[in-house]
Design a protein around this nucleic acid. Structure first.
Lengths: 139, 139
DNA sequence: CGGCTAATTTAGACTTAGTCTAAATCTAGT
DNA sequence: ACTAGATTTAGACTAAGTCTAAATTAGCCG
């Protein structure tokens, strides 16, 4: 009952079923930031019977295990990011491209924001919206 | 044909139909940050035949006219904010409470972020997630 | 091994948020 | 009043994601 052994784990101390591994690999091998549906389609090529619900369950599991990061700006579906260290995002208002970058200052701002809002800070999200390098020229 | 007169306007130079006015008032009179559905229900009390689609159309109109602001963090439905000046948000991870605050530094960070990402900046969103004053004690 | 229990997966129904469509209504200009 | 264009309405539709119940899988114990 009180066993905390997870001898099945692959090194990170978590239980990675074949389905979860497939989902994780799809995200890691994607150069991009795929949506749950992108992941579902790619995962089906590895595990043809994997279901919709399992992809969502796996994504939740992997997110909670800290193995992937969920990015959700309001527009449409959430996207998933293999980069799990804190970082910032820029989204192109024209073509929708999403890029990662890191601003060390954001972490400082979190403290200032926590003081001002009187919240206990857990995380902070900085998102830039504008035109990506391609669209700023073309437009 | 080339008349730019909008004598119907209420002062901001925009065409505010009764439906749009009702939606705007609901948002302005809400102390909170209502969702589209909250707004739909409240607007029905003023205009009992107002439809679902009209609320969404009005929200888009008001947003584009700069009269309200849309807030969307991934979790669930968009919320609407009567405060249209740039500002930041904090969301409680426990109870979902959303509060406004303003950090002058955020605007500076936008410039740094634009340089780093090579985007042409249009807007920036800073969102703090953590525990609101009520939940940090109770928890 | 054979069965027990708990966790996971599956398929598909369901929910929620929001968009679309086509017909009806309203508004302005003549 | 007539017409053209914009707006509203009701309800169908879509997309993203959650839920459910049954089937499968995995670990555990005798």
């Amino acid at each position: 009952m009180a066993s905390t052994d997870k001898s099945q784990a692959s090194g990170s101390g978590e239980k990675l079923t074949p389905q979860r591994q497939a989902v994780l690999q799809v995200i890691r091998e994607s150069g991009d930031h795929p949506t749950a549906n992108d992941i579902f389609e790619a995962a089906r090529k590895r595990l043809p019977t994997i279901s919709h619900a399992t992809v969502y369950n796996s994504l939740r599991y992997l997110r909670e295990a800290g193995l992937v990061r969920e990015i959700s700006f309001g527009d449409s579906a959430s996207r998933y990011d293999r980069e799990t260290d804190r970082h910032d995002h820029a989204i192109c208002n024209n073509c929708g491209k999403l890029v990662d970058f890191d601003l060390p200052q954001t972490a400082d701002l979190m403290r200032v924001a926590a003081r001002k809002s009187r919240f206990k800070a857990e995380s902070v999200y900085l998102t830039l919206r504008g035109l990506c390098p391609d669209c700023r020229e073309g437009g």
